[in-house]
Design a protein around this nucleic acid. Sequence first.
DNA 1: TCTGACCTGCGA
DNA 2: TCGCAGGTCAGA
Length: 268
Amino acid sequence: MPELPEVETIRRQLLPLYRGKEIADVRLKTPQLLKNCEPAFFADALRGQTIENMSRKGKFLIVECSHAFPVFHLGMSGIFLKDPAESRYPQHIHLDIDFTDGSALYFQDMRKFGKIWLYQEYPDLPNLGIDPIIGELSEAQLKEFLGKRSIGMKNFLMNQKPITGIGNIYASEILFRSGISPYRRTDEVNAGEVKALHESIHTILEDAIERFGTTYSAYRTVEGESGTNQDFLKVYQREGLPCTKCGSSILKSVIGSRSTFFCDNCQQ
DNA sequence: TCTGACCTGCGA
DNA sequence: TCGCAGGTCAGA
């Protein structure tokens, strides 16, 4: 669930709360979340480190410490909380980070799809494409990406290699705003549609960030509050409800093993 | 390029 | 009690 807007919301909230704090202790309760080192090494490497910055690429959150760079992917239900009392699922808090000033940070992940890595220097994350919020995704680049192969538009947006950060909810919303069917092939999209798609990617993601993300199940902000973007969704989870543009019923189908919502009349 | 596995809470 | 929710990745 946490897609680019949710991870960006978390980053923006965490940074002013934790920048400059020194890590006193780290307790990793679920070692399977850690992907590239042993839990003891992870804790040793972070103890005594100061958080200098936090950055993001796609759905990955990069914590920049003085000499260590833990990277988090929130999977489908991962969130950070500053207060464990805000947790709906306290049994699923997998990581506690204590700071020397007495504060703490908790990583909760009900479904354990989250992942954690530790790097000694700022990681490249080479398998990720352009982040449309922090990178420059031009219309020309988008057109080039679309023309490289012929795959369905929904699958194109979900693939993190050309453009990173878009997941199932925002893929449906972006295609609806663009007026493009999720079944269209990438090499069939015309110049006007490329322009609409380019505009929609930015608008949908930026609006969702302003609304602190979309809360459907587990996602909460660092303060434990819901986002508000779910109140503005036009197609996602609206099967059978009237399209806000034409009044036709919103349809649901499965594309790439994922639920996809669209208006058959507005999206060609 | 597509499918299933991973995982657990929730609603039907 | 069972199916669904979905991000990523391995394997077909």
